[in-house]
């Protein structure tokens, strides 16, 4: 995993602002049962990212997956964190990313353990859109003319959301700041904030 080109400030020495409330809506788990997303964005510190399983851009969804893997492993190895954190991977391609597709995508990562990693999708774009809108996660339909022949693309800005146990988004990582070290520092900052109350 690439490391940041700077030394991030130590956990607890900075404030993560309450950027916005995480939205709620209906999602599907790997068993296909409808559930509320809010059940997976409260009580624990949540690291949530949107993906689609056919994404191949190395700086897009696969990059987020790598970071999630590293964070998952590090949190599982930290007794002070493992009972306080969960990861959520949510698809924004409900037409193709069915629960069974998400199950294959998740592989062994979805197995029960001290650090839950939920793989979720939605039944339809109608149910997905309010979630995307609520998170401010854009999707843009564009025409790429750089290669000569126009090529239509569905593009999105890579964003990963850090959500506190009360359900507030406290950090949004784009690719420039999406490093396991920074995410872990922020998780520890939220834990320290909780302890100080």
């Amino acid at each position: 995993m690439p490391a940041p080109g700077f030394v991030p400030p130590p956990p607890g020495t900075y404030t993560l602002e309450r950027i916005m409330a995480a939205p709620d809506g209906e999602v599907l788990g790997l068993d296909g049962r409808p559930q509320r997303l809010g059940a997976f964005t409260h009580e624990r510190i949540t690291v949530l990212g949107f993906i689609y399983t056919t994404c191949v851009d190395p700086d897009g969804c696969p990059r987020a997956y790598q970071v999630f893997d590293a964070v998952h492993e590090a949190v599982a190895a930290a007794p002070a964190l493992r009972q306080r954190v969960r990861l959520v991977t949510l698809s924004f391609d409900p037409a193709r990313d069915t629960p069974s597709t998400m199950r294959r995508y998740a592989g062994s990562r979805s197995r029960p353990g001290p650090v839950p990693w939920l793989f979720l999708t939605t039944r339809s774009a109608r149910e997905l859109m309010p979630l995307l809108e609520g998170f401010g996660q854009d999707i843009r339909y564009t025409t790429d003319r750089s290669s000569g022949a126009p090529r239509r693309e569905l593009a999105h800005v890579l964003k990963v959301f850090l959500i506190d146990p009360a359900g507030f988004v406290r950090e949004i990582y784009s690719s420039e700041f999406l490093y396991p070290r920074t995410v872990l520092n922020d998780i520890e900052t939220l834990v320290l904030e909780e302890r100080a109350r």
């Binding site: 037409a95 693309e153 800005v157």
Partner: peptide
């Protein structure tokens, strides 16, 4: 910020039809 209804509908169509989807990261 509200997303226009036409945009929502079009996204629904895009996702349903399974048109090529490519991620773009911030430049």
């Amino acid at each position: 910020m509200l997303m226009p209804h036409r945009f929502r509908n079009a996204i629904a169509l895009v996702l349903t039809c399974g048109i090529l989807a490519v991620a773009a990261v911030a430049a």
